[in-house]
Computed example of a mutant assay.
Amino acid sequence: MASTMRVQTRSGNRALIITTLAVPLTGWTMHAVSLHRKLAAARKDPLTGLLGRDGFTTRARQITDRYGDAALVGIVDLDHFKAINDGPGGHAAGDRVLAATAARLTAWAGSRSAVGRIGGDEFAVAVRIGPARRELRLAQLTQLLAQPVEAEDGVLVDVAASIGAASPDVLGTTDLSVLQRAADAAMYEGKHTGRAVLAGPQHVTVPSINGRRAGRPGTHTLGRAA
């Protein structure tokens, strides 16, 4: 008697019926289903729910191509994050800070943006913000990310973030890899200053890997270049 297997798709709206007598469920079929699930899962960071590097790259390129000079690409790096992980709250406190940062970035950027986690305590954002509003919006983001985060035991954890941003009208390109490289260099220039830095042409020349300054920890392990 023929037997069947029903494999639910991720959306749950459709099902693939495989009749074992007509289409044998070979090792390759099983591998293909498993691979599809892994690839789908890899598009989102499991801790924060943000896009992973490749997912962010795809979405961010759509934003920069569509909005041109009105697009803004930002790099966010949490300050003193190792001290949070090594503190009384341990990695649980660090996870709360990462999740809170992700939620704040998402709220600030809005639904038509791209927000991704591209490293341990590093985030990227691509959003539509016109030149006239950039300074104000970046100042708002700096203040938002500096709000304390409540740990599991109710203790408030002090946090701060360094922010660099880049825009096509200033740099003369919508190339995402160039924008990310410049934003990362600008972020590093403003490290621990409490202000966001908008990249200029001088930031484009900084050598980079995966859109980040060459030599930063993990630059060789974060997937393909943006």
Rank of each mutant, 00 (worst) to 15 (best):
A102G: 11
R53V: 13
V170N: 02
R216V: 06
A146P: 05
A32Q: 15
V206H: 03
Q143E: 15
P131Q: 09
K38Q: 15
A214L: 11
P201S: 08
M187N: 00
M1P: 11
V206I: 13
E122I: 04
I129N: 00
A182S: 03
T101F: 07
A126V: 07
N13R: 14
D45G: 02
V76G: 04
A42N: 10
D54Q: 13
V125N: 09
L222A: 14
D45M: 00
R224C: 06
P131V: 10
A71C: 07
R59A: 13
A41I: 11
S113K: 02
S208V: 00
A41F: 07
T29C: 14
A199E: 07
P46I: 03
R213Q: 02
I209C: 03
D153L: 05
V178W: 02
G223C: 08
V178F: 01
Q180C: 14
R112Q: 13
A226S: 14
S113Q: 06
G52T: 11
L136H: 14
L138D: 00
W28Q: 15
G27S: 12
Q202F: 00
D45A: 01
T57D: 10
T221S: 10
L98D: 02
E122Q: 12
T58L: 13
G130N: 08
A107T: 15
V197T: 15
W28A: 15
A40H: 08
D95P: 05
D45K: 02
E152Y: 09
A2L: 11
D54M: 12
K38V: 13
A225G: 10
A99R: 11
G164D: 00
F56W: 14
L39E: 14
A70T: 08
S34D: 12
G68M: 09
R43T: 13
